[in-house]
Design a protein around this nucleic acid. Structure first.
Length: 228
DNA sequence: TAGGCCATCTGGTCCT
DNA sequence: AGGACCAGATGGCCTA
């Protein structure tokens, strides 16, 4: 159980309580108000505060020396706590940077491109996901249209496997990481109104989405997909 | 040299 | 009680 006073004095290390026990009466009463032993049975009792270790016949010199040691100890404890907190915060930021670096590796990038900044990475990822979603949506629409066309003409299109557009063949100079979709082959025919045409159309739309929307959502000075 | 980006420190707040 | 998270401050590095 944590009392309000204990919360207030949470910065004070429990190992330094011995020094408070030998401190002067003011600080001693305040500490005893927060100590479990003094609060049990008699919460906030002035009588109990005036009794016990504080009401001893210690000399002034001993009290002063005790306070000095206590302040020094509290200072050291606080400093150690701060050092530990700084270390944790550093590690936390490092893990955050690692996650950002992982995100960079799955985003399309040019080989000679300079590293995306943090904000650029996040914005690019946002637009990249949006473009992918948009491409899937358009592909779904196209597929349904083709199916209805096929049903109407009672023609079953023959299938074949096409290669993905070679890197650099489009306006965006697509990187190898971005063309990873070629690993999942597309089945199509050669007719302009066929799935083959749709495959290219979908990729075109996707690349257009990336090229069109990414720069408008990033800082005007740096747009990775449009750098020379 | 100004401005952008980054790492780190720090104190406050919230959560477990 | 201690850790996680957050935002502000600060100083270093780099580039136009």
């Amino acid at each position: 159980m944590c009392t309000a006073m204990e919360t207030v004095y949470s910065d004070m290390d429990s190992s330094s309580c011995d020094y408070f026990m030998h401190d002067d009466e003011d600080s001693c009463s305040s500490m005893h108000a927060s100590s479990p032993s003094s609060s049990i049975g008699k919460p906030n009792s002035p009588a109990s505060d005036s009794q016990g270790p504080c009401a001893t016949d210690m000399g002034q010199k001993k009290r002063r020396r005790g306070r000095a040691r206590n302040e020094a100890t509290v200072h050291v404890v606080k400093k150690n706590r701060r050092v530990k907190a700084n270390d944790r915060e550093r590690n936390r930021m490092h893990s955050l940077n690692d996650a950002l670096e992982t995100l960079r590796t799955v985003l399309p990038a040019f080989p000679d491109d300079s590293k995306l900044t943090k904000i650029e990475t996040l914005r690019f990822a946002h637009n990249y996901i949006w473009a992918l979603s948009e491409t899937i949506r358009i592909a779904d629409i196209e597929q349904r249209q083709n199916k209805s066309r096929a049903d109407a003409s009672l023609l079953l299109p023959s299938t074949c496997v096409i290669d993905a557009p070679s890197p650099g063949s489009d306006a965006c100079s697509w990187s190898s990481s971005a063309s990873s979709s070629s690993s999942s082959p597309s089945y199509c025919t050669s007719s302009p109104s066929s799935p083959a045409y749709d495959c290219f159309a979908i990729r075109f739309v996707f690349l257009q989405n990336i090229c069109t929307f990414f720069p408008t959502h990033t800082t005007p000075t740096r747009s990775p997909l449009h750098r020379s």
